[in-house]
């Protein structure tokens, strides 16, 4: 076998110091993605530093209406937390739309955000992949790519980020707390994941020796929020496309809106073009459609994934329209 070391970290500082000194060390959370990829030979760490028992498990108010979520809060626990359900329904709904009950029980908040992008070629070590073996090529562009990116992809990589949680965090203007040997920094959730450009091997901006310790949610934005995910089967499937939205309508006019797409790009796609188009506009289906089309005008579909563009537009219109209709509860499943 390919041997690797395993240590269980006793505290955050030691964990970070250990990984900092070992170039091929990796933090281990719930293991629902890293361990799978190790079995496939995609990830080949020399040392696993298990941080899953560090006391990063709080969901605590930290002033100004903010909420701080420890990196080790399990997806199930976060989705079920009364504060999350009451104040950030889009976040709870996004979590519950992901994976299966068993996986949500194991997966952590930090690990969810650090799961690798998905692509069948990335997972198959017998084939080229620029993400896994930089410079080897990207067979997905001409190969099997129905599930892959339509926005922000590069000639080097067309993989998609599979996290539902990350889409909701992008819409909520959340931030990610990263702790390194020299202290802590905070990165906006929208800037945490990156587009592939010419460095497809990097999914996020986290440094090797940084540990994701928490997620911070700002005070809930005004209005209502919802998450809707389209997928092949009713449960336990990655998004073909998804939408996280927050909408505040006053007197028939859009006062505030946050919109993010999942399943379309290498990162959760915050739809700033659509948001700009909607601010101050009448809260009508026509506005929503116009705004979504404006955002998706940047799409560059591949041969077999063009359906994602109308799919994402329809989802956005649907979710925004249901949020605009105060008497209409958003339709979360089909």
């Amino acid at each position: 076998m390919r041997p690797f070391g395993y240590v269980r970290a006793d505290d955050v500082e030691t964990a970070i110091a250990t990984v900092a000194t070992e170039p091929d060390a990796r933090f281990l959370g719930g293991g629902t993605n890293l361990v799978d990829l190790m079995k496939l030979g995609v990830e080949r760490p020399g040392l696993l530093v298990d941080v899953s028992r560090l006391p990063l498990t709080g969901i605590d108010p930290v002033g100004d209406g903010k909420l701080r979520i420890g990196a080790n809060v399990r997806n199930s626990d976060l989705a079920a937390h009364p504060l999350i359900r009451a104040r950030y329904p889009v976040l709870s709904q996004a979590l519950l739309a992901g994976a299966s009950g068993q996986l949500r029980n194991a997966a952590t908040t930090g690990g969810n955000l650090l799961q690798r992008t998905r692509c069948l070629y990335f997972q198959d070590v017998s084939k080229p992949c620029n993400k896994r073996a930089p410079g080897s090529g990207c067979p997905a562009r001409e190969g099997i790519h129905r599930d892959l990116a339509v926005l922000g992809h590069s000639e080097h990589c067309v993989a998609t980020n599979p996290s539902d949680l990350a889409v909701a965090l992008a819409a909520l203007d959340a931030s990610v707390v990263l702790r390194g040997p020299d202290g802590e920094r905070t990165v906006a959730a929208t800037a945490f994941h990156r587009l592939p450009a010419d460095l497809p091997e990097r999914d996020t901006v986290i440094a090797h020796d940084e540990l994701l310790t928490a997620v911070e949610l700002p005070a809930p934005p005004p209005g209502r929020s919802a998450y809707r995910k389209a997928r092949d089967r009713a449960s336990y499937a990655f998004a073909l496309a998804s939408v996280a939205a927050v909408l505040d309508v006053q007197g028939g006019t859009v006062r505030e809106v946050r919109l993010a797409f999942g399943g379309l790009a290498h990162k959760p796609w915050r739809a700033t073009v659509a948001e700009q188009a909607l601010l101050g506009a009448p809260a009508t289906e026509e506005s929503f459609r116009h705004a979504a089309d404006a955002e998706l005008a940047a799409a560059r579909p591949l041969r077999d994934n063009g359906f994602k563009v109308p799919l994402a537009r329809n989802l956005a219109v649907r979710v925004l329209a249901s949020l605009a209709d105060a008497n209409h509860m958003p339709q979360l499943g089909s």
Binding site: L120, Q123, G143, I144, D232, R233, A234, S235, Y236, A237, F238
Partner: peptide, 16 residues
């Protein structure tokens, strides 16, 4: 065949 695991080869779940 591209779909070679149960994450990509979808069989019905109870919810289906």
């Amino acid at each position: 065949f591209a779909e070679r695991d149960l994450a990509s080869y979808h069989v019905p779940t109870c919810a289906d």
